[in-house]
């Protein structure tokens, strides 16, 4: 699944059935290749942000129509979260970043992140818009650096650009094998 399918979902408690929040941002760690936490909005059109974060470890399940947590205690005040997660700001939004290889070849613009369904937020690749038009997927761990403006990837990544999610699945294993990460 992609993060676009997660953002905007309601956060519902398993024990109470209460609709406590709505997913706003996905906080992602390039170092861990995983979604670390979700930032939240209050429910209701004119309601603002919630100060708490929802750490991935407290998520019970991410479904098609809701993010499930056991109870409202799953939400964590921002100042109690890990420093890198609590300090993550909108200036480091990955969406819209240029994907550049070490040689300076643009592979496209990041449109979304592909998250492995049924896991605690493992990210397997990026969905990009190709420079010539159309969508493509590149596998993780691809990035050498992420700045909020550009994503720099090894030259080898060019060989593993795939046009669909099925192709991405196979490319991830092959790519990791080539990088010696298996």
């Amino acid at each position: 699944m992609t993060t676009a399918q997660i953002r905007g979902l309601p956060v519902v408690t398993v024990l109470g059935g209460d609709d406590v929040a709505e997913v706003r941002d996905v906080i992602y760690s390039p170092a861990h290749g995983a979604v670390m936490a979700l930032t939240l909005n209050r429910r209701g059109f004119l309601a603002g942000r919630r100060k708490e974060l929802l750490p991935s470890s407290s998520v019970h399940a991410i479904g098609q129509h809701a993010v499930m947590v056991m109870d409202e205690q799953a939400l964590m005040p921002r100042d109690e979260a890990r420093a890198d997660v609590a300090g993550a700001g909108g200036d480091r939004d990955v969406l819209g970043n240029d994907v550049l290889t070490e040689r300076g070849v643009s592979l496209g613009v990041v449109r979304d992140l592909v998250v492995l369904a049924g896991t605690s937020g493992a990210v397997v690749g990026y969905q990009v818009s190709k420079p010539g038009g159309g969508e493509a997927f590149i596998p993780l761990p691809a990035q050498l650096s992420v700045s909020g403006k550009a994503l720099v990837v090894p030259d080898l990544t060019e060989e593993f650009v795939r046009d669909d999610l099925v192709g991405l699945g196979a490319a991830v294993d092959e790519f990791r094998g080539r990088l010696g990460l298996r």
Binding site: T3, R7, G8, V23, R24, D25, V26, I27, Y28, S29, P30, A31, M36, T39, N41, D84, V85, G87, A88, G89, G90, R92, D93, V94, L95, D112, L113, P141, Q143, L144, S145, V146, G148
Partner: peptide
Amino acid sequence: RGGVIATRGKP
């Protein structure tokens, strides 16, 4: 809708 925010630190 927010976005996808990368944490700091070496990938």
